[in-house]
């Protein structure tokens, strides 16, 4: 190509296709903590605020969700990150609650401290918490929903879409405010994942 001085100041064309499409997903990889929870990576945070931990919890019944992400051979992921989104105790998503947690680098256990969600009376939906999971080996983030064993789940329209035998993968039982929720990526107890 001949030297063309105009090319030294030419603006780049966009990388977007025509028609425009959603940016393709890529795996979060094993080092996601560097970007979103850098203290976990062993970095002295260069930022003044920690976006993961600086959010106040609204009023409600305090609960903890505790779990692990397991692969098809039962091995525990130790580099996954889990984000949750839920209604507040009155069922409002306008005042929804977001949390972010990492699997412990040694044990793989993640812990989300939140309040029990409510449900708006007209929806027929049982209280639930959406969980979005990213990790090495996941090319796309996975979305699942946690339901509470003590609630009436018989008429929930989303659970009704799930084959009965797989519903237990979405239901957590609590003890003293701590709910256990292991996520099985594969296997006989593969957790139900959703497309929204």
């Amino acid at each position: 190509m001949a030297y063309d001085p105009a090319r030294t100041t030419a603006p780049a064309a966009t990388n977007l296709p025509e028609p425009i499409k959603e940016t393709p997903s890529q795996t979060a990889g094993p080092f996601i903590h560097v970007g979103i929870m850098c203290a976990t990576a062993g970095i002295t945070p260069p930022f003044g605020t920690d976006l993961t931990t600086n959010r106040d919890l609204p009023a409600g019944e305090k609960i903890t969700i505790e779990g692990r992400i397991l692969d098809g051979e039962g091995a525990v992921a130790t580099e996954a990150v889990i984000e949750s989104w839920q209604a507040d105790r009155a069922g409002s998503f306008a005042r929804g609650i977001w949390r972010r947690a990492a699997s412990d680098l040694e044990t793989g256990i993640f812990r989300i401290e939140t309040v029990k969600p409510g449900t708006a009376p007209d929806t027929g939906l049982a209280p639930h918490i959406a969980l979005w999971i990213v990790a090495r080996g996941l090319n796309n983030g996975l979305l699942t929903q946690l339901y509470f064993a003590e609630d009436d789940l018989t008429s929930d329209p989303i659970l009704a879409l799930v084959p009965e035998a797989r519903r237990p993968t979405l239901i957590a039982s609590g003890r003293d405010g701590t709910y256990c929720f292991d996520v099985h990526l594969q296997g006989p107890h593969e957790t139900v994942f959703f497309d929204t």
Binding site: D71, G72, G137, L138, L161, L185, Q186, V192, F193, D195
Partner: peptide, 13 residues
């Protein structure tokens, strides 16, 4: 991805 990609289809909400 071999042991981590879910095998069951996603359920559409």
């Amino acid at each position: 991805t071999r042991l981590r990609a879910p095998r069951q289809p996603l359920i559409a909400i």
